[in-house]
Design a protein around this nucleic acid. Structure first.
Lengths: 201, 201
DNA sequence: AATATCTGCGACACATCTGTCTCAGTTAAC
DNA sequence: GTTAACTGAGACAGATGTGTCGCAGATATT
C-alpha cells in the first residue's frame, strides 16, 4: 500500500538546496523585505529557476520561512520551560534563545504588515506560549500590566529594537566580548520589558 | 526684478490637489506601504496622471510626505516646549500632540526599512529635539537610561505599538469616550516609556 | 555503470507599476 | 469673457518581477 513501488526518492542534493534557499531568504529579506527572488537565489549561490523548483511560488517560500520561524520559537519556549520554571527565569532563558536563532525580526514585522498575507506571522501555539508566560509573570508580581496580548506586543517591539542595536552600544555594557553579547542583549531586553510593563527591572 | 512679468501662477485648484494627494497617500500607505500610485489616486478622488503632474515621481511624493511629517513633528515639539518646560510635562504634551497628528507610524517604519531611501525618515532637527528631551529627562532623574538615541528608538517603537492598539483595549482604561482616547493613549505611552527606560511611571 | 534526479542557462509569456504624452473639456484668475 | 492652468481619460513605452519550459550537463542513488 505504501508508495515504495515508485522510488520517488528526494535527493539529498535537493534538500540541501532548500535549506540554503531558506537561509539566504532569511538573510536577504531581513535587509530588504521586498527583495527579488533573484537576489535570494544569488545569495544562496543558486539559479533563480532552482528557487522556483523548490518553492512553487514566492508565497510558498515565505510560508516556509514563517513555519520555520514558528518551529524554532516553539522549541525555544520548550527549552526555556515557559510553563514550569519561575517566570522571570523563563523569560531570561527564552530571550537568550530567541536572540541566538537570529531569524531577523525586521523581516517578521514587514511581513506582518503586508496585507497580502492572510496567515498571521506567529502561530497560535507560539502566541499562546507567550501569553502563558506573561500571565505567569503577572501572577508572580513581576509585572503589573494585565493583558497578555499587550505584553506580547511590547515584548516583540522591544525585541526588534534591541536586535537592531549596533554592537558596542553603551546599553550593552562595556564588555564587547562577542561571547557575552547575546547575554547583554537579553539582559537589556528583559529589564526594559519588565520596566515597560510596570515591574521593577 | 521679480518674475511678475511671467504670470507663472499656480492655481488654487492645483494646490488643493496636492494636499488631497498627500492626505490620501498617508492614509493608503499606512495600510499598505507598497500601495500603487493608482490606489493613492483613487483614494484622493483624482486620476493617476494628476498624481504625476503634482509629483514628478513616486519618490518625490514620499519625500513630500516625510517633509510634512517632519514639519509637524517640529511644530509639536515647539508647542510642547521641549526645551524649557519640565521634561516630564513636555513628554506628556509632545506625546499627546503626536497622537493627534495621526501621521501613521507604520508607514514611517516601513519607509525607514526600505534601503532605497537615502534620507532618514526623521530630520536632524526632530532627532535633536527628541534627544534634548531625553537628556533633560535623564538629568531630572525621570529615567536612568543614558543614551538619547536608545531612548528615541524605544519611544518610537512603543509609539507605534500604542498607536496600533485597538480602541477599547483594557490598557486604555474603561472610559472609551473618544474625547479621552488620545489622552489615554498618551498616558499609556508615557508610563510605558518611562518604565522601559528605567524610571518610575 | 545505469538511472533517475537535480541544476544552470537561456528563452519565453504574463502581469504589474511607473512615467510620458495627447487631447478635449473644465475651472480658476484677471 | 478671455486666457492660461488644471483635469480626466486613454494610449503608449519601458522597466521589473514572477512563473514556466526545454535542454545539456552534473550529481546522487542503486
Amino acid at each position: 500500500m505504501t508508495e515504495a513501488t515508485r522510488p520517488r526518492r528526494v535527493r539529498a542534493d535537493a534538500e540541501r538546496s532548500t535549506a540554503r534557499i531558506l537561509e539566504a531568504a532569511v538573510a536577504v529579506l531581513a535587509v530588504d523585505p521586498n527583495a527579488t527572488l533573484e537576489r535570494i537565489a544569488d545569495a544562496a549561490g543558486l539559479a533563480r529557476a532552482t528557487v522556483h523548483r523548490r518553492f512553487s511560488s514566492r508565497r510558498a517560500l515565505l510560508e516556509a520561512m514563517t513555519d520555520q520561524l514558528n518551529e524554532r520559537y516553539l522549541l525555544s519556549m520548550k527549552q526555556a520551560r515557559v510553563e514550569t520554571a519561575p517566570p522571570v527565569v523563563a523569560l531570561h532563558r527564552l530571550t537568550e534563545r530567541v536572540f541566538e536563532l537570529k531569524i531577523s525580526h525586521r523581516f517578521a514585522i514587514e511581513l506582518a504588515a503586508d496585507p497580502a498575507n492572510r496567515k498571521p506571522l506567529l502561530s497560535r501555539e507560539v502566541l499562546d506560549g507567550l501569553d502563558l508566560l506573561f500571565t505567569r509573570l503577572h501572577a508572580a508580581g513581576a509585572i503589573t500590566a494585565g493583558s497578555p496580548s499587550w505584553c506580547r506586543q511590547v515584548y516583540l517591539a522591544l525585541l526588534h529594537e534591541v536586535d537592531a542595536l549596533p554592537t558596542g552600544s553603551p546599553e550593552l555594557g562595556a564588555a564587547t566580548d562577542p561571547t557575552e553579547e547575546v547575554g547583554a542583549r537579553s539582559d537589556l531586553l528583559v529589564s526594559t520589558v519588565l520596566g515597560a510593563l510596570g515591574g521593577t527591572p
